[in-house]
Measured scan of single mutants.
Amino acid sequence: SADYSSLTVVQLKDLLTKRNLSVGGLKNELVQRLIKDDEESKGE
């Protein structure tokens, strides 16, 4: 998976916004949300 932890919070929020995901929470939560979304989209 992508190394989201190396991105800035601003970059993470931009990715979340593009996916229509919540941008609330700490950086670690944003990273986990993106990883979870990646895993769910692979399952389709």
Rank of each mutant, 00 (worst) to 15 (best):
T8A: 05
E44W: 13
S1K: 13
S41P: 08
S5V: 08
G24V: 15
V9F: 07
E39D: 08
V23L: 09
L15C: 06
N28A: 14
T8Y: 02
E44T: 13
S6C: 08
K18L: 10
L21E: 03
L16I: 03
E29L: 04
L15H: 04
S1V: 13
L7P: 00
Q32A: 13
E39W: 11
D3V: 09
E39N: 10
L26K: 14
S41Y: 08
V9N: 05
L21M: 06
V9G: 03
V31F: 02
A2V: 15
V10H: 13
V10R: 14
N20S: 07
R19S: 02
G43A: 13
K42L: 11
T17R: 15
L15Y: 05
S22L: 07
L16E: 00
S22H: 10
L21V: 02
K42G: 10
L30C: 05
L21Y: 01
E29S: 06
Y4W: 03
K27T: 05
S5C: 15
N28E: 15
G24S: 15
L30I: 03
E29W: 03
L21R: 03
G24M: 15
S6H: 11
S5T: 11
S41H: 14
G24T: 15
E29K: 05
G25A: 03
T8C: 06
S41G: 10
V23R: 07
E29D: 12
T8N: 07
S5M: 14
E29H: 06
L12G: 00
K13R: 15
G43S: 12
N20V: 04
V10N: 14
R33I: 05
L15W: 04
Y4T: 00
L7Q: 04
N20I: 02
Q32F: 07
V10I: 12
N28Y: 13
G43P: 11
E29F: 03
D14E: 15
S6N: 11
E44S: 13
N20K: 10
V10A: 15
K27G: 03
S41T: 12
K36F: 07
N20A: 07
Q11S: 05
D37N: 11
L7R: 03
Q11H: 05
V23S: 09
L7A: 03
Q32D: 13
G24E: 15
L15P: 00
E40R: 14
R19T: 02
E44L: 14
K27A: 05
L34P: 01
V31I: 15
A2D: 09
L7D: 00
G43C: 10
L21P: 02
V23T: 15
D3G: 10
S6Q: 12
V10F: 09
S5G: 10
D38R: 04
K18E: 09
K18A: 10
R33P: 03
D38L: 05
E44H: 14
Q32I: 08
L26V: 10
L12E: 00
L15A: 05
E29P: 00
L21F: 01
D14H: 12
Y4I: 01
R33L: 05
L34Y: 01
Q11E: 12
V31R: 04
E44G: 13
D14L: 13
L7C: 07
N28T: 10
V10Q: 15
K42I: 09
L21T: 02
G24R: 15
I35D: 04
S6R: 12
Y4E: 00
D3C: 14
S41N: 14
D3N: 11
K18D: 07
D3Q: 10
K18R: 10
T8L: 05
L34N: 00
I35S: 06
K36L: 09
S41D: 08
N28D: 15
V23A: 09
D14T: 10
K27Y: 07
T17P: 01
V9H: 06
S22T: 07
G25E: 02
V9Q: 05
V9D: 06
S22Y: 09
T8R: 04
Y4G: 00
Q32T: 08
K18I: 09
S22K: 09
V23D: 07
V23C: 07
Q32K: 08
K36A: 11
L12H: 00
S1I: 13
S1E: 11
L26R: 12
L26P: 11
D3E: 09
L12W: 00
K27V: 06
V9Y: 08
K18G: 07
V9P: 05
E29T: 06
S5R: 09
K18P: 01
R19L: 04
G43T: 12
V31M: 07
E40Y: 09
T17N: 10
R19D: 02
Q11N: 04
K27D: 03
L21N: 02
Q32L: 11
E44N: 14
E39L: 14
S41W: 10
L7S: 02
Q32Y: 07
G24P: 03
A2T: 14
T17F: 11
T8Q: 04
K13Y: 06
G24Y: 14
Q32N: 13
T8P: 05
L26Y: 08
R19C: 05
D38Q: 04
K42T: 09
S1C: 09
N20L: 06
G25Y: 02
S5Y: 15
K42M: 11
R19H: 03
E39T: 08
L26N: 15
K18Y: 07
R33D: 02
I35L: 12
E29Q: 08
Y4F: 03
T8K: 05
L16M: 03
K13W: 07
D3W: 15
K42D: 08
Q11R: 05
L7T: 00
L30H: 01
L7G: 00
R19G: 02
D38H: 04
L12C: 01
S1M: 13
E40I: 11
D38C: 05
L16C: 10
K13L: 08
V10G: 12
D14S: 10
L34I: 04
E40P: 06
L21W: 01
R19N: 03
T17H: 12
S6I: 10
Q32E: 13
K27N: 03
K13C: 07
D14V: 13
L34M: 02
D37Y: 14
N20P: 01
L30A: 01
R33G: 02
I35G: 03
L12R: 00
N28C: 10
L21H: 03
G25P: 02
S5H: 14
L15R: 04
T17M: 13
E39M: 13
D37Q: 06
V10K: 15
S5Q: 12
